[in-house]
């Protein structure tokens, strides 16, 4: 393999990591509060805002039903507004983030809903405000599932990031398509796939390791 190819692969790996990392962080910054709100705002719940809950739920569902490749193209004007350009790796972060937010929000919502309602009750009985319950009870108790959810989101983002070549975003996926498919270099394609597999494995293992670390519940199967 030529030195040139190796540096290409290294650069592409770096670009993928850059896009995925930034969009995962931004996706969490926006997705976490959104997910917490979705989980706590149905009628009779902690924040009880049934109408806003419904509307946001619809928006989230709509965003999630748009195939990623269509989303990338559809929001080009918005991407240009945010990133100053609609082409390139940095610009690709915009659609990746837009896709990540509703996905992460739903994952967080599910994680929060899993928290035993008895804990919310206990905290209310202590005189906690809804915000205190969210900060001191719901998020810490949901942390193991939140961690696993975010792991899943990062893995999905790695997959999505392979499609941003369509708008001039680079990275491993783009490299694989351009060299492996268009220039018919199957060995490059194979190496790209191997790197992606290793990346996903790494992310998954680290995510599971952190989740186990923060999980103080009794091991499954041993019961309470």
């Amino acid at each position: 393999m030529s030195a040139n190819l190796i540096s290409l692969l290294m650069e592409a790996t770096w670009q993928t990591l850059y896009m995925v990392a930034i969009s995962a962080v931004l996706g969490t910054i926006f997705g976490l509060p959104l997910g917490v709100f979705l989980a706590t705002s149905q009628r009779g719940e902690l924040l009880s805002r049934p109408v806003i809950n419904k509307v946001l739920g619809l928006v989230v569902n709509a965003a999630r039903s748009v195939p990623f490749i269509i989303l990338v193209v559809a929001i080009i004007p918005f991407t240009r507004m945010i990133a100053g350009t609609s082409i390139g790796t940095t610009a690709a972060i915009v659609p990746l983030t837009i896709a990540a937010v509703p996905f992460i929000a739903r994952l967080i919502e599910n994680a929060i809903r899993e928290v035993d309602s008895g804990l919310i009750e206990a905290a209310r009985a202590m005189g906690a405000t809804p915000l205190q319950i969210i900060r001191k009870v719901l998020i810490p108790e949901a942390l193991p599932s939140i961690t696993l959810g975010l792991t899943l989101a990062v893995v999905s983002l790695i997959g999505y990031s392979a499609m941003v070549g369509a708008v001039g975003g680079e990275g491993l996926g783009d490299l694989g398509i351009r060299y492996g498919y268009q220039r018919f270099m199957p060995d490059v394609m194979a190496i790209v796939v191997v790197i992606l597999v290793v990346l996903v494995q790494l992310v998954q293992s680290v995510g599971e390791w952190i989740a186990a670390k923060v999980d103080k519940r009794a091991p499954k199967g041993r019961g309470q």
Binding site: G127, K136, K216
Partner: peptide, 26 residues
């Protein structure tokens, strides 16, 4: 104060952390 049949302790907090919770809240 209230105590419960199924205890309702936070799994993520130690004994000391659980007892501290109402004080943090206050």
């Amino acid at each position: 104060g209230m105590i419960f049949q199924h205890f309702n302790l936070l799994a993520s907090r130690t004994v000391a952390g659980n007892i501290a919770l109402p004080l943090e809240i206050a």
